[in-house]
Lab assay of single mutants.
Amino acid sequence: DELEKRVKKIARKLNLSLDQVEEWLKRNNNDELVEAVKRLKKK
């Protein structure tokens, strides 16, 4: 979905793993995208 695409884009842009992106999003209080990261990690 759109949020998952955004997460992947962030990960690529910042050259981070999904775990690192998740931490980064949590620090930025971006719950919506944190949920998207969790969905991606399950895939």
Score class of each variant (00 low, 15 high):
D1I: 14
D1H: 12
E2P: 09
E2K: 12
E2N: 09
L3S: 07
L3T: 04
E4G: 03
E4T: 05
E4W: 08
K5G: 08
K5N: 13
R6L: 15
R6T: 12
R6E: 14
K8W: 15
K8D: 07
K9V: 12
K9E: 15
K9G: 10
I10V: 04
I10Y: 04
I10T: 01
A11V: 07
A11T: 03
R12M: 12
R12A: 14
R12F: 12
K13F: 13
L14I: 02
L14W: 13
L14K: 04
L14E: 02
L14F: 14
L14V: 01
N15S: 09
N15W: 07
L16E: 01
L16C: 04
S17I: 05
S17W: 07
S17F: 08
S17T: 14
S17R: 08
L18R: 02
L18E: 03
L18G: 00
L18T: 02
L18M: 05
D19S: 08
D19Y: 07
D19I: 05
D19W: 06
D19K: 07
Q20S: 06
Q20Y: 03
Q20A: 10
V21F: 08
V21W: 03
V21C: 05
V21I: 13
E22C: 07
E22A: 07
E22H: 07
E23Q: 10
E23Y: 08
E23N: 06
W24D: 00
W24M: 09
L25R: 00
L25T: 01
L25P: 00
L25S: 03
L25H: 00
K26G: 06
K26V: 11
K26Q: 10
R27Y: 10
R27D: 10
R27I: 10
N28C: 10
N28M: 13
N28R: 12
N29A: 11
N29Q: 11
N29Y: 08
N29V: 07
N30D: 09
N30T: 04
N30E: 15
D31S: 13
D31Q: 14
D31N: 13
E32V: 09
E32P: 04
E32L: 13
E32G: 05
E32Q: 11
E32I: 11
E32S: 11
L33G: 02
L33T: 02
L33V: 02
L33I: 04
V34F: 07
V34P: 03
V34G: 03
E35Q: 08
E35R: 06
E35N: 07
E35V: 04
A36E: 02
A36F: 04
V37W: 04
V37T: 06
V37G: 01
V37S: 02
V37A: 09
K38M: 06
K38L: 07
K38D: 05
K38R: 14
K38S: 04
K38Q: 12
K38I: 12
R39W: 04
R39V: 04
L40E: 01
L40Y: 04
L40P: 01
L40D: 02
K41P: 02
K42Y: 06
K42S: 11
K43Q: 08
K43H: 10
